[in-house]
């Protein structure tokens, strides 16, 4: 087992704990946000992005490279038509089901067995994208 994977697993435990703590593992709470009944989700994404902002933009000023190797590179990408079409399709599915990839995976750990259906169909969706859409843009 690579040290890198153990580090990812450890950070993933915090990630999953936070998703469950914030209620994101419950599709009902996500749907109540999207119906604008409970705006708390803004603070989940905002709080997480804020902390991560320091890791990505400030920490590299004091460290040359990641502790276990690799390089510091912000997550930037080129805007294409597919970025927006995909986001629109994702948003529609999010509004139907109240699940996103991370919350659905973590939800398994709360004993939420029906989410297996959602995850199975996410795999199917990801497969269809690879099967029928050309790579590139």
């Amino acid at each position: 087992m690579k040290t890198r994977n153990i580090a990812v697993y450890g950070g993933g435990i915090l990630f999953g704990f936070g998703l469950a703590y914030s209620g994101m593992t419950r599709p009902e709470i996500v749907l109540s946000f999207l119906r604008l009944d409970d705006l708390g989700l803004i603070f989940v994404m905002g709080g997480a992005a804020m902390v991560t902002f320091f890791a990505i933009n400030v920490v590299p000023k004091f460290m040359k490279a990641p502790a276990l190797g690799g390089t510091f590179r912000p997550r930037v990408s080129v805007l294409t038509r597919n970025t927006l079409i995909g986001a629109a399709i994702f948003g529609t599915g999010w509004g139907i089901s109240g699940q996103c990839p991370g919350s659905a995976v973590a939800s398994l750990g709360t004993g939420n067995w029906p989410i297996i259906v959602g995850l199975t169909f996410m795999f199917l969706g990801a497969y269809l994208r690879g099967r029928f859409i050309k790579d590139g843009n």
Binding site: N82, G86, G93, S97, Q99
Partner: peptide, 19 residues
């Protein structure tokens, strides 16, 4: 869960990112 999951899987991979 099923229909939403399908669109989430397809859409996030087309968009190269999720939440």
């Amino acid at each position: 869960l099923a229909l939403g999951g399908l669109l989430v899987g397809f859409g996030t991979r087309l968009s190269n990112g999720c939440t």
